[in-house]
Design a protein around this nucleic acid. Sequence first.
RNA 1: UCUUCAGUAGCUCAGUUGGUUAGAGCAUCUGACUGUUAAUCAGAGGGUCGUAGGUUCAAGUCCUACCUGAAGAGCCA
Length: 505
Amino acid sequence: MYISELHKGIESEITVKGWVTNSRSSKGIEFIVLRDGTGYLQCVIDQNNVGEDNYNEAKILTQESSVELTGKIIENEREENGLELLVSKLLIVSISEEFPITNKAHGVEFLADKRHLWLRSKRQWAIMKIRNNIIYAIHNFFQKEGFVQTDAPIFTANAAEGTTTLFETDFYDNPAYLTQSGQLYGEAMAMALNKIYTFGPTFRAEKSKTRRHLAEFWMIEPEMAFYNNEMNMDVIEKFLQSVISEVLDKSKTELKILDRDTALFEKIIKNEFPRITYTEAVKILKGEKDVNGKNSLTTLEADLSDLKSKIEELKKDIAEREKMVSDTNIKKGKRNFIKSKIGQLKNELKSTEEKASYIPQWLESAKNFEFGKDLGGSDETVLTRMFELPIMVYNWPHEIKAFYMKRDADNPDFAKGVDVLAPEGYGEIVGGGERETNKDLLIEKINEHGLPMDAFEWYLDLRRFGSVPHAGFGLGLERLVSWICKTQHIRETIPFPRYYGRLTP
RNA sequence: UCUUCAGUAGCUCAGUUGGUUAGAGCAUCUGACUGUUAAUCAGAGGGUCGUAGGUUCAAGUCCUACCUGAAGAGCCA
């Protein structure tokens, strides 16, 4: 029986198969926390119940040893899931060698090296389950809305946007690149199937070293025929609300394990997202325009002074606890507990100081933002800080957007693109817009970007044969997972992350 | 690519102004304990201080270069 189904078997005799994730012992009694991939369960091995042979076997169980345990399921309020297994029989499947990942703290590099084992830990388990639910919710939404899922190729002859670095491979003695977007192919398929979406891996060879970047990530790219950018934004909003609402519903346990506050999500699924133009966004960023009485520059300054007082508090707290540790009368266990708390506080202090040190730079960068430029990571953080919900920034200067973005006839300097910025500093999770339908403008743009025209002949065909207005967007799956799970780094959101400097395991 | 910080036991870290034989917790092993929740208690083993040079009577500690990692910027989803 799977641990997730045990509530059906209370008071009955069942067998669970899994791995020992933690064990504690006392004389004549062993407590084992078993995980089977579907959940966690405390199992009690009492010498009086299992007999001496089984009990002696239980004593040699190491972390991650695999076992089959038979016994009676009983209710126990002290446990997280309210259940406990009174073991009557123990069968060892395999005794594990010393497991490198313990229940204590580990550094990021060590965990990344041991990713294949790290995935077994509770937090990673919860993230992977949420990732799965997000993927399911995405398909669910599009399928219900009548979209057809199609696939774009991974090998491509050239760049879609030309600006970013590509991974080059050898394709039968010719250079080929790993795709950085399936969008152009999505457009072709939308002309054949109307509303479509692609769901596949994409690759960017940028040497980005931030907590928001991966070299290999999964992207969802819907494309809709006969849609303009306003309709596109409506879809994005409905889509994100639908996914979040489904995750809220299905991933309660996992969100709790991650200690994720879901109040924000409740608001998101009930309220329209603010839509602001790039021009407005710049004004807000520079502090020239307030949002609900809030000014970006003063908000940032207030954040800074909050951080500073937090730093003082932490320092005081640490000093007090260090005094407690130096007391010789204190019990060893208590002292270790305080020591580990001090370690935690020191880490918190370090990251708070780091954060505080960046704010003045962010302030400068916000104040001096040059109209016409793309929003940087810090600008996005400042901007989203002004709103509670995700925000949609639309109508961007056409020069900083891709060649296929539709020019706004009323404001020729702008293109009908839209970016969705996630709250809490998670940045851009969606980028999209309406596509250019004017073939001559497209040709002009392709030349401007210095792209090889012959590689885009097929794309221009889409404008030659029954061209229609159409729009779409791209969602970075890992960015969404990262935000929903509130992870420290995007590398926790994919089973085996690939990023600058990381190719194994 | 740039800026800042870091690299000491299997893991997480401490190591004061350069000064005796390099320290703790966890993990491992041995023992104690009949309801533990990161269990606790007693004991044991475990080190090329990232690498290479240099300064010095003396370097984990100071200097230089390189390697690796982290955070941020740039670029982006």
